[in-house]
Each structure stands twice: as C-alpha cells, then as structure tokens.
Amino acid sequence: MSSIMFFSEFELPLKNPVVRVKVISKWKDASAIIREETQMLMGDEKGNTVLGTIVDEIMIRNECIMFEGEWYEIHGFKLMYNFRRFRVTTNRFHVFTGENTIINNVPARTDCNYYGFKEFKTILRGLAHPMYSVDVYGAMVSVGDLEHVGAPGGPMIPKMRFSLVNPGYKHLNCVAYGRNAVEIDAYWNYTRANVVLCVLSFWQIERLQGRFTFITNIEGCSRIKFEPNIPEIIAFRQLIPPNAY
C-alpha cells in the first residue's frame, strides 16, 4: 500500500502516488476544448497548495464528484511541471488525473485556511512577483458601484472597484469581476457595520509599465471572506478607532 504524500514531497518520476487533499476552489477552464475538465486549487494537511486538472469523466467513473471544502484521496495521478505564465500557487508541479486514477471521499483532516498573507508594502514596492497569486486582508474603503463592462459584441460582466486599508493605513487598490464583484456588492449593501474587514485569497497582481496598479480576482479561483474568525482579523478589529476611515 502506498503512503500518503505531501505536496512538498513531489518529485519526478512518481510511483503509485497517493495524496490526501482539500478542494479550496474549483472552476471550469474555458480553454478545455476536447473534453470536460475542472480546475481545482487543492491543499494538503501541511498547508501546502497545488493546482490540479480533474477530468469530469474520472469523477463520474469513481462516483465521487469533488466539492469545495471537502477532503479526498487521489490515487494514481499524473504529475507535470507547471509552466503557466500565471500560477495560483508557488508549487512547481501540476496534478492531472489519468485513466487509472481513483478518487475517494475522506473525513476532514485539518481546518487550515491556506492563507499566506503578503504585506501591502511588499506588493506596492513591486517585491511580490506578479507570476503568483497573493493573499491580503484589510478594511474595505472607497467601494464603488457595481458596473457591467464588456467588449463590443461580447458578454457583459459585473465589475467592482474598491480599496483595502491595512493597520498601517496603507491603501491597496482592488478590482473585482464576475461572481466576486456581485458578492462584494451584495455584502456591502447588506451590512450595517461601519468598518468591513475581509480577506482576499488567491488574487492576481496587475502592473503597468513595471508599477503596481491594482490586484484583481481570478474568476472561479479567487475568494473573498468577510470578517473571518482568524487571528489577523481579530487583532485588526481591536485596533480600529471609533471613527475609523
């Protein structure tokens, strides 16, 4: 029987590989033409992440449709180097299912949130590599109206501009599209809180002429959590003055 591997142990070649993963987010890849595939950002028990491409037919064959937030064991997968220009994880490998891949649902293993927060100054100074996604947290300010934008003749998609402020009062410009934009608009119009704290996970850095402009979401992959019960948000909340922002 093969032992469970952690993502940090990945090396080529693999022999009878088995991993135990949590599905952090899943989405459809518009470039998948020949067969239906699902992209998944997965985490292991040590807090590491990896990108996976799961063929839908493999899930159906195993009678195991993979859902966000659930844990699974994957046996007999394939491993390739990740050569994508933008990567949602720093892991250099990409997991693929094969014809003999077996997927089983397993009990939850850990409540890790998989956050790896970047300081605002690191992003603003251009020290965070735009090839990789970032996680940030802060207070929402300068929240704009929900817009709908699109190319001529193309579909219109929701868009929302806002900024985050960190405990040091540094501002980070943000632009959300699609589902995340609608989610932000709904929460912002619903809440009665004077200050809204949130976490943006797996967002992309945008630059213009070598300078930081804003961070934006990756449709289907990026996540936003409002007022999560984590140490960083709890500590931030305690620092907020009565008439903040």
Rank of each mutant, 00 (worst) to 15 (best):
S2Y: 07
S3H: 09
M5E: 12
S8K: 01
E11L: 01
L12K: 10
L14N: 04
K15W: 02
P17M: 02
R20N: 08
S25I: 04
S25C: 05
K26E: 09
R35I: 07
Q39D: 12
Q39N: 14
Q39A: 11
M40N: 02
M40H: 11
G43E: 12
D44L: 11
K46N: 08
G47P: 01
N48L: 09
N48P: 01
T53S: 06
I54Y: 00
V55T: 13
D56Y: 04
D56E: 06
I58H: 10
E63K: 06
C64N: 14
I65C: 06
I65L: 13
M66K: 10
M66N: 09
Y72S: 00
Y72Q: 11
H75V: 10
K78I: 05
R84W: 01
R84G: 02
R87D: 05
V88A: 10
T89L: 02
R92P: 05
R92D: 01
F93Y: 15
F96E: 07
T101E: 01
I102A: 14
V106Y: 06
A108G: 03
A108L: 07
N113E: 14
Y114P: 09
Y115D: 02
F117M: 06
F117K: 08
K118C: 04
K118W: 01
T122H: 03
G126H: 12
L127D: 03
P130F: 12
V134I: 15
G138T: 13
A139K: 06
V143F: 04
E147W: 05
G150E: 02
A151Q: 13
P152I: 13
I157G: 03
K159D: 12
K159L: 15
M160Q: 14
R161Q: 13
S163N: 14
L164Y: 10
L164M: 11
N166G: 05
Y169Q: 10
K170I: 03
N173D: 15
N173S: 15
N173P: 02
A176L: 14
V182L: 15
Y187D: 01
Y187A: 01
W188S: 09
R192P: 07
R192L: 10
A193E: 15
A193Y: 14
L197V: 10
V199Q: 03
F202T: 13
F202Y: 14
W203P: 12
Q204W: 00
I205S: 00
I205F: 09
R207D: 05
R207E: 15
L208S: 12
L208C: 13
Q209A: 00
Q209M: 13
T213I: 12
T213M: 04
T213W: 06
T216F: 05
S222L: 06
S222K: 08
R223E: 00
R223D: 05
K225E: 03
I230L: 07
E232W: 00
E232M: 00
E232Y: 05
I233K: 12
I234W: 04
A235D: 12
A235E: 06
A235H: 05
Q238M: 10
N243W: 07
N243F: 03
Y245A: 05
